[in-house]
């Protein structure tokens, strides 16, 4: 990478570094470490309050309102959430392919398959769309819960569930915006191997958000 980083729009560090690593990558890993504590605080609260709600609806149990006699079914929709989980998992695959495509941008491509795999715009689009689809599933889930009678104010489960998954959703939203920004850069001037780091740090963030969902899916949805 000679001094021709001129058209890199993001700040580029080309000073001496102790470990030979780019500072932005060090920072994003430190940030991810910090996010572990953030999500553990949210997850702890969800688990602490699990089974402590006084009124329903509940995640896995039916509940009859003693006042009205209305029966609330278990509220979590496992099939729908399994689908959205699968979408998010696939987005991680698209993300690594986007990174690989940017890293190998300048390598000659001979076969059709190599050209498809080397298309950074395609994989960035796929990742961002998968993220947006996940958010769509979440919006559907939230509205149907509210429709069924569970809001963020209803009980301890509602407060901790919406806050935990909402925080995750906010992270996915930020990730989608980040990916769209990268796409815009790719369309404007093309992302090349010298921009790998820009995509790499976005990818680390994206995978981390996926990893958090892996934990949430098991702890919140599957374990009763």
């Amino acid at each position: 990478m000679p001094a021709s980083v001129a058209h890199t729009s993001a700040p580029t560090s080309h000073h001496y570094t102790t470990l030979g690593l780019d500072s932005r990558k060090v920072a994003i890993w430190a940030f991810i470490g910090s996010e572990c504590m953030l999500f553990v605080s949210l997850i702890s609260t969800y688990l602490i309050y699990k089974g402590r709600s006084i009124v329903g609806p509940f995640p896995h149990e039916t509940w009859t309102d003693p006042a009205t006699g209305h029966v609330f079914k278990p509220i979590l929709n496992i099939p729908v959430t399994s689908a959205s989980t699968f979408v998010l998992l696939m987005s991680s695959l698209f993300m690594v392919l986007a990174l690989a495509a940017v890293q190998n941008k300048e390598k000659p491509k001979h076969t059709r398959g190599e050209r498809v795999l080397g298309n950074s715009k395609l994989w960035l689009w796929m990742t961002a769309s998968a993220g947006a689809t996940f958010l769509g599933f979440q919006a559907f889930e939230f509205t149907s819960f509210v429709h069924e009678g569970l809001s963020i104010r209803t009980n301890l489960f509602g407060s901790s569930f919406f806050t935990l998954t909402g925080f995750h959703g906010a992270h996915v939203t930020a990730g989608v915006i980040w990916l769209v920004t990268l796409l815009a850069i790719d369309y404007r001037r093309g992302l090349g191997s010298k921009d790998s780091l820009l995509v790499d740090i976005a990818a680390l963030y994206w995978h981390f958000v996926d990893v958090i969902w892996i934990v949430i899916f098991t702890l919140v949805y599957l374990i009763k």
Partner: peptide, 15 residues
Amino acid sequence: FFGTNFYNTVSAGAD
């Protein structure tokens, strides 16, 4: 601001 129950010990059974 939004009426959640994290610290609502009276009516929601918060800890």
